[in-house]
Amino acid sequence: MNVLHPESILVPADGTQTPCLLGSRCDNCASVVFPQMPVCPACLANGAMQMVEIGRTARLFSHTIARFAPKGFKAPFFQIFVDLPEGPRIFSLVGAECPIEPGVLEDGMDMRLVLEPLADTPESKDLLTYKYVPAASPEKSGKARHA
């Protein structure tokens, strides 16, 4: 499967790794940003950014249900912003295992990363991307779904 933003995601090659996002951490001011950048947007240092693994978990900052889908997506679908423990606040989507109903998500709840196809549509079903699901939801066994 193709990865939508390969520079931004660590896709496990085997069972010894867990997936995560790839951001940049500034050696000068410790800011962490996602996606990766060569210049720190906080202190403007050039050449001080190091790649870091981030985003295995997150906290839900805000969420909505879109009732209209752009091409390649299927409505309704959740759209969210999450706070990563390492610092960044990023836009993301919600994993397919989470039912799309009001009340299922609550701002502030703990989330965990899943890698899965962008959407269940002909245009997007073969594009792997990063999404989040409530941390309390049971972990799916096996890596087959994103192999």
Partner: peptide, 24 residues
Amino acid sequence: LDLSQMGMQFTTSYAIHPKINLKA
């Protein structure tokens, strides 16, 4: 593109973007 390819729409940004966040 990093946003639009993930399905972000302007309507969404007004609803939940941290700096507008009408829901909040």
